[in-house]
Design a protein around this nucleic acid. Structure first.
Lengths: 110, 110
DNA sequence: TTAATCACTTACAAACCAGTCAGTTACAAA
DNA sequence: TTTGTAACTGACTGGTTTGTAAGTGATTAA
């Protein structure tokens, strides 16, 4: 057990971190949802209009997952018709700069 | 058609960039493969040992896809037993710093 | 002679992801 | 009275991803 780091080797902790990171960014719609919430709180219906290709079911399912992960916060108002707002949590805000940068990866492959 | 940018809106170009970026980083194994090739060329068998949970079939399939995407380069030597090496392409090297940072997203969710 | 190494390929099955479509609640407008 | 709106839910289905298991060919080591 020496103290020398072997930076090229992926260790158990890295595996966990990567797995968690992939949960947040992977999937056909997650990044789109997050980027649309980058700057402001939005209602569910607003997100539907902004990402028209996603189905209702999947959008709700993904929003739920992102809330569970702790990237988003959800606020329901007792109104009729209902109003539900989604916004970034503190964690979500913390990772936003990186998420915005991910788009730049694509630039190398167009 | 005014010239004012609305930075909060995701436009067609963003969609394309994001889609391309997701091709590179998404999937259960892609990032692992890329990170193991971050610093050095490696043989196929070496990657198998470094990522023991991935099946042979999927590893080869993912390597093939990454070569096709232009992130990796493959070199086969006419030897017996065969020797095949994988390394980052120039594009791959260009996006590496960002890929390494992605792990840090996970740190917020452990 | 048998087993092992290396980089694959193929057939098949299970798991996961995403999509359609119909239905729900409560009110408001036509 | 019918229609519309908002935010969902659940059944069902097709498609993609991932996994399992077996086999290939050339060569060396035991």
């Amino acid at each position: 057990m020496n103290g020398i780091k072997q930076p090229e080797l992926i260790v158990e902790e890295d595996r966990l971190l990567l797995k968690k990171a992939l949960e947040v960014i992977c999937g056909k719609w997650r990044l789109f949802i997050l980027l649309h919430l980058a700057d402001k709180t939005r209602r569910y219906s607003e997100l539907r209009r902004l990402i028209p290709d996603v189905s209702e079911k999947v959008l709700i399912q993904e929003l739920k997952a992102l809330v569970l992960l702790g990237v988003l916060e959800k606020q329901s108002f007792n109104e009729v018709p209902p109003r539900v707002e989604y916004r970034l949590s503190d964690r979500g805000k913390a990772v936003m700069p990186l998420l915005l940068q991910i788009k730049e990866i694509g630039r190398h492959f167009i």
